[in-house]
């Protein structure tokens, strides 16, 4: 229950920190979409309800803070989440190389869908930016993804230990 209560706050803070702190780490040159890595991680390790809601809320806050069309990143993140769930059923998704390649493909797919969306729905051709802007972003995201996966795993372990302790305490009472 605590997870669902904290989810909106966590997602909101995560998106805000992504657009401020994480971008400062890369000297504001590259936009690093760590939310996408988190969604993929959720697809590999979480159930439909928890992971789906996490992807939904991350996409929702990203849409608001970035000022994109409301719902665009929600749809994208949910698609990536469900795709990752399906992939994790068939493939052993723990190897570094696999994680990097998979994140690369997902980031590329996301970028392509966003560009197509703007071209056909908003009549705005942004394809000329692909090499100079989007490709570096995709490469950076895929390069840092194994480190992010490790961080998320450790963070998840910590939360699980906390949850187990509180359960124990409740049972002892």
């Amino acid at each position: 229950m605590i997870y669902f209560l904290l989810l909106p706050i966590f997602s909101f803070l995560f998106v805000v920190f992504q657009t401020t702190v994480f971008e400062l780490l890369f000297f504001n040159r590259v936009c690093v979409e760590i939310t996408l890595i988190l969604v993929i991680y959720a697809g590999f390790h979480m159930d439909v309800l928890k992971g789906g809601l996490l992807s939904f809320s991350l996409g929702f806050f990203l849409d608001i803070i970035m000022g994109t069309v409301m719902g665009l990143y929600v749809v994208l993140y949910l698609s990536v989440f469900f795709l990752s769930m399906l992939v994790s059923l068939r493939v052993y998704a723990e190897k570094t190389f696999f994680i990097m390649s998979y994140v690369f493909v997902c980031a590329l797919l996301e970028c392509w869908i966003v560009l197509m969306f703007y071209k056909y729905i908003r009549d705005l051709d942004l394809f000329h930016k692909f090499i100079s802007v989007f490709l570096p972003q995709v490469l950076v995201v895929s390069l840092i993804s194994p480190a992010c996966f490790n961080t998320f795993r450790r963070f998840g372990d910590l939360l699980n230990v906390g949850a187990e302790r509180s359960d124990k305490r409740a049972r002892n009472r």
Binding site: G52, M70, G71, V74, L78
Partner: peptide, 13 residues
């Protein structure tokens, strides 16, 4: 979840 997100996107488009 997918239906809600698609409704949200369509409405804003």
């Amino acid at each position: 979840m997918v239906v809600i997100s698609l409704i949200m996107l369509s409405y804003n488009i």
